[in-house]
């Protein structure tokens, strides 16, 4: 099978399986709480239900409101397409595409924030301000992680070594197995970023109904119908993106693409289980402690970067 077909198969798989991740998280949480929980496929049902529904738009909102969902979904899709899914180099890969991926996600967030501000609600304004603050703090952490990865044996493939495909395409996996254990800091940091960027506990509580404490949920209060479906699907894709990053570091190069793909898939699903466990055993941080969590993650990423340099 050609790399392109292998990549396309996995891309389609990612598109299809992304809404499963929130289902897994919810199921793990339900087990911890001693409940049966919602169906695994609940998000699929929700998305299909919402797509068939009409929409209610606030009188004070403009076209910017409907721009948010579309842009956030489109950017999440494009960012995902830059990842080397299953270790197979993305057909779109180029030098420095990690910047594009990071800022595509940033653009999506920007659109959602604008849409939230567009409604003129004080709740959504607060949510937007919190989201902007925390994502601004998360950005340098993400870049230090990627920088640490870029510093690992970059000379092998000059054409793509500064792209996501070069950084995550199985090389770090092989490297840490050969003893570069400092690389193992990076997936830990990326896991923290996953929690922050996808609004999970301990940063945000996706299940709360209390507007005053929400971050992400409160920004999308005014969306309904298909637009809400786009947002939900976009968030699922984003979750897949962030769960795939640790997979790119942990899974080594396999001779057979499908074996590597399976390992990626397993790692991604494991990340969802891990998120569920974290959400079940700890409380939310108070709002002003979140920067400390991100600071800690940043220090760990910097440490990984320094250690890769002294080798």
């Amino acid at each position: 099978m050609s790399p392109l077909t292998a990549y396309l198969v996995q891309f389609v798989l990612a598109l299809l399986l992304a809404p499963l991740l929130p289902g897994i998280i919810n199921r793990v949480k339900a087990k911890f709480a001693g409940r049966h929980g919602k169906p695994l496929l609940q998000l699929y049902f929700d998305i299909f239900k919402l797509l068939r529904k009409g929409e209610v738009v606030s009188r004070s909102a403009s076209f910017v409101l409907s721009l948010g969902p579309a842009v956030s979904l489109a950017t999440a899709l494009c960012a995902l397409a830059l990842l080397p899914l299953g270790g197979v180099t993305s057909p779109l890969a180029f030098q420095g595409d990690f910047l594009l991926a990071a800022y595509l996600l940033g653009l999506g967030r920007f659109a959602v924030i604008l849409a939230a501000l567009d409604t003129g609600s004080s709740f959504e304004g607060m949510g937007a301000s919190r989201e902007a603050t925390f994502s601004a703090l998360a950005e340098p952490v993400l870049f230090s992680c990627l920088l640490a990865l870029a510093c690992v044996g970059g000379a092998l493939d000059l054409e793509t070594h500064l792209s996501l495909s070069g950084m995550l395409g199985g090389r770090p996996g092989t490297e840490w197995l050969l003893g570069r254990s400092e690389l193992l800091f990076v997936p830990v940091v990326l896991f923290v970023l996953l929690l922050v960027e996808n609004c999970r506990i301990p940063v945000d509580d996706p299940n709360t109904h209390l507007e005053l404490t929400m971050i992400h949920e409160v920004m999308i209060l005014d969306h309904s119908g298909p637009n809400l479906a786009y947002i939900l699907y976009g968030s699922a894709l984003k979750l897949w993106f962030f769960a795939a990053l640790p997979a790119g570091i942990l899974v080594p190069d396999f001779p057979a693409w499908w074996a590597q793909a399976l390992c990626w898939l397993a790692t991604i699903l494991l990340m969802a289980v891990l998120v569920g466990v974290v959400e079940s055993v700890m409380a939310r941080l108070r709002m002003y402690s979140v920067p400390r969590l991100l600071g800690g993650a940043g220090v760990l990423a910097a440490l990984a970067l320094i250690l890769t340099q002294i080798r």
Partner: peptide
């Protein structure tokens, strides 16, 4: 417990 997002006590005490 529920408002802090702490699942176990929130779920048990509800019952």
């Amino acid at each position: 417990a529920g408002d802090t997002g702490f699942l176990p006590t929130s779920a048990w005490n509800g019952r």
